[in-house]
């Protein structure tokens, strides 16, 4: 089991397109791609530039993958093939068990990690067990035991060679992080936005094709040009839309790095809309 007192936190950043507008010097790891939309698989030419850039700047590299139809999967396989033969330790964030299957059978040089679409299902994004972030040990233990994952599920992760899981809800970490850490599965956190839902009727694409119930199919990647914020006074928080996914802002007042260290999280990924 990881020793929380000696945890060093790796800093990562998710970039929407490459080259990105914001400075990435302070980050050790780049997250490329998208974990919600099959339309945002990086083009091969972009990927080659990213690989070259990360090699020169000595940065590590993770590719995000979403849930795919067979057509999307074919495109992804081309990308995975390039990454697999690059001879580098490249992580692939998996949100679709089909992708996990092909990684474990065809692309053995790539490292699968369990994406946040799966872990987000563990705790409702609107649940705010804020008290637990600074709780007394007894209380923390009580909840942790109640919420801990079934052994069968952890065994399944081992069978699939999953060595890292990713969360984006800071409030779920006190409840679940230990279940993974004691099985030697590392934990990452995307911060500050927490995923709520995803749709194949993308709100950007459907602006122009309202009649279609499958607007993802009419997509022109409008989401790369715009972001969207939704407000309704009945909902306590704004909803932030990036591409075909919706998020809420779960920024906390405490120092996030300290909280991560305390909870044994060893990677913090800056994720913006």
């Amino acid at each position: 089991m990881n020793d929380k007192s000696t945890v060093t936190i790796e800093k990562g950043i998710h970039i929407i397109s490459f080259p990105c507008g914001e400075p990435v010097d302070e980050y050790e790891r780049l997250y490329i791609g998208d974990d919600f939309c099959e339309r945002l698989i990086p083009e091969v030419s972009d990927l080659e530039r990213i690989l070259e850039y990360t090699q020169h700047s000595n940065k590590k590299f993770t590719l995000l993958t979403a849930y795919y139809t067979d057509k999307g999967l074919e495109k992804l396989k081309v990308v995975l093939d390039i990454l697999n033969s690059s001879g580098r330790n490249i992580e692939i964030t998996v949100n679709d068990f089909g992708v996990l299957k092909i990684l474990n059978s065809h692309f053995l040089n790539l490292i699968p990690i369990l994406g946040r679409l799966n872990t987000s299902l563990l705790l409702h994004p609107y649940s705010r067990a804020a008290g637990l972030l600074n709780s007394r040990n007894k209380l923390h233990r009580f909840f942790r035991e109640r919420f801990s994952l079934a052994n069968e599920y952890l065994e399944f992760l081992h069978e699939c060679k999953i060595k890292r899981v990713e969360f984006d809800n800071i409030y779920s970490l006190p409840l679940f992080a230990d279940s993974f850490l004691k099985e030697d599965i590392a934990v990452s956190l995307y911060y500050p936005f927490t995923y709520v839902t995803t749709s194949r009727r993308c709100l950007f694409a459907s602006r122009k094709a309202v009649s279609s119930r499958f607007a993802l199919l009419g997509c022109k990647k409008e989401c790369l040009d715009y972001k969207l914020i939704l407000q309704n006074r009945n909902i306590g928080q704004k909803i932030f839309v990036r591409g075909n996914a919706q998020f809420i802002n779960n920024k906390i007042k405490q120092n996030i790095t300290m909280i991560c260290k305390k909870l044994g999280v060893d990677r913090l990924i800056t994720f913006s809309i």
Partner: peptide, 25 residues
């Protein structure tokens, strides 16, 4: 209190919103 006052409302996906599209450029 939090749940009763804040969250026992219609599903968020059933509501209409004020949407602000912001250009990334």
């Amino acid at each position: 209190k939090k749940y009763r006052d804040k969250y026992c409302k219609p599903l968020p996906c059933m509501l209409k919103y004020k949407a602000v599209f912001i250009s990334r450029f």
